[in-house]
Design a protein around this nucleic acid. Structure first.
Length: 290
RNA sequence: GGCGACGUACCCAAGUGGUUAAGGGGCGGGUUUGCAAAACCUGUAUUCACCGGUUCGAAUCCGGUCGUCGCCU
């Protein structure tokens, strides 16, 4: 079994290369992208076209409705699933947290529970509560880091054990044996701008209107992401289309920088497309251990 | 040309005599163990247009210069 992890900042050209490599090496594709999982979010997420998806199915694309939950573990499960059915897998995407979960497996933690979480959200001082049940996590987490403080509390509420204990128990599985290809390119900023113009022409605004028509969509995770929040402001009449696109371009670039930061932290050196092709060839020519 | 207002970081902006010059945006750096395109942390003006004066002490008061804006001629 061989897994190629094809990552990189947004707009680096991962998708096209992934399809090319899948075809060349007869590999199956798993998307590592927290946004393209949603049906109906096509333009803003730069999702591969329906034609490409029909010809080269990607696991984890179009698997949820806007508003439905999807988490890292769902992604990891999808990689496992693909691996059980096919000897060659290409994981392609730019969500660093998902990619990292392959190299550094998650601990055995329970899934999020909306009911429990809602109760914890109403605590007057979650961080103080955490300091009581799990002092180690409390001291590690900044009091303002509400998301993680609540999660630590949630883990304890559900399992009766602390996050600290569960982390100490080690990962739930061995890391995936992956060949990493972190694709990057110098002219990323220009590509982001160009892609945004293409999105505009491809019906970006219409897509936002369509999604917004679904009840409750406005408050969902993907619509609060940088690809949609500014477009929503435009559709609501608060800012012009040009301004919305300007802010989206700015935030997209900012995201790309974050992705690079993550890659640095994981020790993934940026390479160009040709080097990535070479790495793929090496990855898929290796004789696995069965 | 006259009168008036203003000039604080890349941008917006608080501060109108006394500790190391608020805050926000942007930009940079970082964290990330089931919301991660989210969330959080953090750095970013030895100096207030410039020159001189008053004062123990000035971004704050006074004079001049330059600049911007408004009104008038």
């Amino acid at each position: 079994m061989s897994v190629l992890l094809l990552g990189g900042p947004t707009a680096a050209g991962k998708s096209d290369l992934a399809v090319e490599l899948a075809e060349q090496h007869d590999a199956v594709l798993v998307s590592a992208d927290a946004m393209t999982v949603y049906r109906g979010l096509d333009v803003g997420t730069a999702k591969p076209s329906p034609e490409i998806l029909a010809r080269h199915p990607h696991a984890c694309i179009n698997v949820r409705e806007v508003g439905e939950a999807f988490a890292v573990a769902d992604f990891v499960d999808a990689v496992d699933h693909a691996l059980r059915r096919h000897p060659r897998v290409i994981v392609v995407g730019g969500t660093p947290f998902y990619l990292q979960a392959m190299a550094r497996p998650l601990a055995s933690l329970p899934p999020a529970d909306p009911t429990v979480r809602a109760q914890l959200e109403s605590l007057p001082d979650p961080h103080a509560s955490l300091a009581v049940v799990d002092p180690a996590s409390a001291s590690r987490l900044h009091p303002n880091d509400r998301v993680r403080v609540i999660r630590a509390l949630e883990v304890h509420a559900i399992t009766g054990r602390t996050l600290t204990e569960l982390h100490a128990a080690g990962p739930r599985r061995a890391p995936f044996d992956v060949t990493v290809a972190w694709l990057d390119r110098a002219e990323l900023r220009t590509r982001i701008d160009h892609r945004l113009q293409m999105m505009r022409e491809a019906g970006y605004v219409a897509e936002v209107r369509r999604v917004l028509a679904q009840p409750g969509a406005r408050a969902t995770k993907p619509l609060r992401s940088f690809a949609y929040r500014h477009m929503v402001d435009h559709v609501d009449g608060r800012i012009s289309l040009d301004e919305a696109l300007r802010r989206t371009a700015r935030d997209t670039w900012r995201f790309a920088r974050k992705q690079r930061t993550w890659a640095r932290g994981l020790g993934w050196e940026p390479i160009h497309a040709d080097a990535a092709r070479g790495r793929a060839a090496a990855c898929f020519s290796t004789i696995g251990d069965g």
